[in-house]
Design a protein around this nucleic acid. Structure first.
Length: 422
RNA sequence: GGAGAUGUCGCAUAGUGGCCUAGUGCGCCCGCCUGCUAAGCGGGUUGAGGGUUAAACCUCUCGCGGGUUCAAAUCCCGCCAUCUCCGCCA
């Protein structure tokens, strides 16, 4: 959520921010009114409560008839305090509910919606398969030839959008994990393996129970949620804490997504699945430093794709396509030859203090005070999509796949087809 | 899953209904004193919210949430966490 003070100091900037995202500016005015209600009920409650406390002290000292008179008065006060408290609580809740629904202003993101992204750069050159004299196979066909991906049995065992990684497929994920984690450690990130099941507060605090709630798996019996990204446990990791300096984490975790709104899209292969493993970077820092950290995270994502020798581009996502918490998001998209386009493989978001306000995460300041931390997250390696990109971009005419040099120590230079088998 | 115990300021502890505006010690910060250091002396030291130009001031915060009461750290109920033992399990 945003800083509530902005509602009093500069509501017009918030209305403007709403327009930039293509959202309704009038909810800002509803919020201003709710804030006024909240504050006046607080003042009313506190005045009564203060009176109650001082009268309570007189009761303690009074004797006999005087005490009885006082008791009659305090009894009445007690009821008033109770009513004022209820009013205060209700007004506060109404205000908070509205406040949580207001997105983070994104003044630096390109205006517009999903298609209004700005391409920042293209790195590497997609291969020209026509010139090389063969038609590229898609990742699923290659995965089957290599004995790396088994979606039939994934569907048999778990349903559509599930898969088994087998043989070199499984080895590939383990190699990527090892390589990415050691890179991250080199860059100063603390490796983390977080829980993939979290309590409602963690899910709620990171904003995933709002507009994205349909995409989240919920275990009703235990009231636990399966995380769609380790951003959730990583953000909640320091909830209700005061930090004495920046933190950098890189987490490996499974991710679970219902993909509720994407029926019929990317149904072939493992581009869009209900479960996958991912390595995510997460940073806690100050607001001022967050912009530099955002560039730094993007830099690491690019280094990773360079290391894997994949052609990709970087886009600056438009304001209307950002989600609640981010003020700006850079996506890296790898070239997928059989689709003839770039597809998202990683994403770096700066959430400024928006997430930390909800989760109550603060930085200790030099003067002894506190301020909400800024949080940032970025994908380092989402396994299935990176595997898709590696297979399709590295393939050769005979169905074998040439790997980037960085993976040679783990898997050799070339993955060979294993031929037909049961 | 069963039984028991515990949860108070950064740490350690005191506190069994009003004198708690939560005491004391340690640690930490600021002064004073002092050849230096240590000791000693004085003051400060949870966080949030309301209020104010700024202050003053007020409210909340004793694991969390309810309740009883004029009044709750204190009594009652529920939950959570931790520890010990038993069971089960990787």
């Amino acid at each position: 959520m945003i800083d509530a003070r902005l509602l009093r100091d500069d509501p017009e900037s918030l209305r403007e921010a709403q327009r930039r995202r293509g959202e309704d500016p009038s909810i800002v005015d509803a919020l201003v009114a709710a804030d006024e209600r909240r504050r006046s009920t607080i003042a009313a409650f506190e005045a009564l409560r203060s009176e109650q406390k001082s009268m309570g002290k007189q009761v303690a000292q009074a004797q006999g008839e005087e005490k009885q008179t006082l008791l009659a008065r305090t009894k009445e006060l007690s009821a008033q305090v109770k009513a004022a408290d209820a009013e205060q609580t209700a007004a506060g809740e109404e205000f908070t509910t509205l406040l949580k629904a207001l997105p983070n202003p994104a003044p630096d993101a390109p205006p517009g919606g999903e298609d209004d992204f700005v391409v920042l750069e293209e790195v590497g050159t997609p291969r020209d398969f026509a010139a090389e004299g063969f038609t590229p196979r898609d990742h699923l066909e290659l995965g089957q030839l290599l004995g790396a991906i088994d979606v039939e049995r994934g569907a048999k065992v778990s349903g559509s959008r599930f898969y088994f990684l087998t043989g070199v497929g499984a080895q590939l994920e383990l190699a990527l994990t090892q390589l990415a984690m050691s890179k991250a450690a080199e860059w100063g990130f603390t490796p983390i393996i977080p829980p993939a099941l979290v309590k409602p507060q963690a899910m709620e605090g990171t904003g995933f129970l709002g507009q994205a709630a349909d995409d989240v798996y919920h275990l009703e019996k235990d009231d636990l949620y399966l995380v769609g990204t380790s951003e959730v446990p990583l953000a909640a990791y320091h909830s209700d804490e005061i930090l004495d300096g920046p933190r950098h984490y890189a987490a490996f975790s499974p991710c679970f997504r219902r993909e509720a709104g994407s029926h019929g899209r990317d149904t072939r292969g493992i581009v869009r699945v209900h479960w996958f493993d991912k390595i995510e970077m997460f940073v806690y820092t100050s607001l001022e430093d967050s912009y530099a950290q955002h560039e730094r995270i993007l830099g690491f994502e690019k280094q990773w794709l360079d290391l894997l020798e994949l052609p990709y581009r970087v886009i600056d996502v438009a304001a209307g396509d950002l989600g609640l918490s981010a003020v700006r998001k850079f996506d890296c998209e790898a070239w997928i030859p059989t689709q003839g386009k770039y597809r998202e493989v990683s994403s770096a978001s700066n959430c400024t203090q928006f997430q930390a306000r909800r989760l109550d995460i603060r930085n200790r300041l030099d003067d002894g005070g506190t301020e909400p931390s800024a949080t940032l997250n970025g994908t380092l390696c989402a396994m299935p999509r990176i595997i898709v990109a590696l297979l399709e971009n590295g393939q050769q005419a005979d169905g074998s796949v040439r790997l980037p040099a960085a993976l040679h120590p783990f898997l050799g230079e070339v993955l060979q087809p294993v031929g037909a088998r049961a």
